[in-house]
Design a protein around this nucleic acid. Structure first.
Length: 294
DNA sequence: AATCTATCCTGTTAGC
DNA sequence: TGCTAACAGGATAGAT
């Protein structure tokens, strides 16, 4: 489930082949992912040089020399596999199933980019919740229009959350998942950040914005969000592994979560006798320690 | 206006 | 052993 740290990890992995490179050809295995691809999708990319590869929330944005940009979202199960003439194939993204790279002809290989330098970038996405689109020459894009602040940017602070939460009757869990407030948090990191901040996901967001001055609990929440994301990026994403096909060994890294997917297991805080509980909020699993989080 | 629910998609897993 | 149903969840459209 790629969230911000995973998308950032994918961006860094694509950087060497994409940025500064020229797209020679684009092959589509089907006309749609989550949404229909624009009819001139390939035509607008072919022959274009990629000037920069940036990230906004969970979106990747490749700026082209034409003025257009390629907008990409990994959805739930999207991943890229990069084939370079020199080295082994490397998969960037969660190895949700078998992780076997198939050179672009696999059942779920939907988009293939052939680069002038000889590299091939294959987008694979079994559930097709991913998104690709063209942002035409600097125009506004509806998917980016209403995004809130970057969680690692300077705009996120306790005062910002105070304003965003004031009068809000939705629970903290829903408020933090709301991309219009903070853009880039998903289910896993919201659960983890709330645990670190000692705040219950069930708490009504507005209860943290009653005092006039920013509540110290909001300071803790901001610090927790930053810390959990920063650590995850440094670790290369929670569920991401770079997969070098040549030696067949997937990366061994697996983030150890404090609460996510730990229903029934003991709270990790020393001395705490609480057990992690699971509830469903907004149709999503929420994990929390009922002792630590208030 | 704010908030909630159903929907999309398919492989995995829990349960019978 | 084999089948079915629940589950994963980002974003949106539609309902409340």
């Amino acid at each position: 489930m790629p969230e911000l740290p995973e998308v950032e990890t994918v961006r860094r992995g694509l950087l060497p082949v994409l940025e500064g490179g020229t797209i020679r050809a684009v092959r589509l295995a089907r006309p749609d992912l989550r949404f229909p691809l624009p009819k001139d999708f390939a035509a607008r990319l072919q022959g274009r040089r990629v000037e920069a590869l940036n990230r906004r929330a969970k979106y990747l944005i490749a700026a082209l020399d034409s003025g257009d940009s390629l907008l990409m979202h990994l959805g739930m199960t999207g991943r890229f596999t990069v084939y370079t003439p020199a080295g082994p194939a490397v998969t960037l993204g969660e190895l949700y199933f078998d992780g076997l790279a198939s050179a672009g002809n696999g059942l779920h290989d939907h988009v293939v980019f052939e680069m002038e330098a000889g590299s091939r970038i294959v987008y694979t996405d079994p559930r097709r919740f991913g998104i690709m689109d063209i942002i035409v020459d600097g125009a506004a894009h509806p998917l980016l229009q209403d995004l809130g602040v970057e969680p690692l940017g300077e705009a996120l602070d306790a005062a910002y959350l105070w304003r965003a939460f004031r009068g809000k009757r939705a629970p903290l869990k829903a408020a933090l998942l709301d991309q219009r407030i903070i853009a880039g948090l998903g289910n896993i990191y919201v659960c983890e950040a709330l645990y670190r901040a000692g705040l219950s996901p069930l708490r009504i967001a507005g209860t943290l914005a009653r005092r006039r001055a920013p509540d110290p609990r909001l300071e803790r929440l901001v610090a927790a969000i930053r810390a959990v994301l920063t650590e995850a990026i440094a670790a290369g994403g929670s569920t991401l592994r770079d997969y070098a096909r040549s030696d067949g060994t997937p990366g061994a890294f697996q983030q150890v979560f404090d609460v996510y997917d730990r229903e029934g297991e003991p709270c990790r805080r020393p001395g705490c006798r609480g057990r992690i509980r699971r509830v469903v909020q907004s149709g999503r699993s929420t994990f929390r320690c009922p002792v630590c989080q208030r």
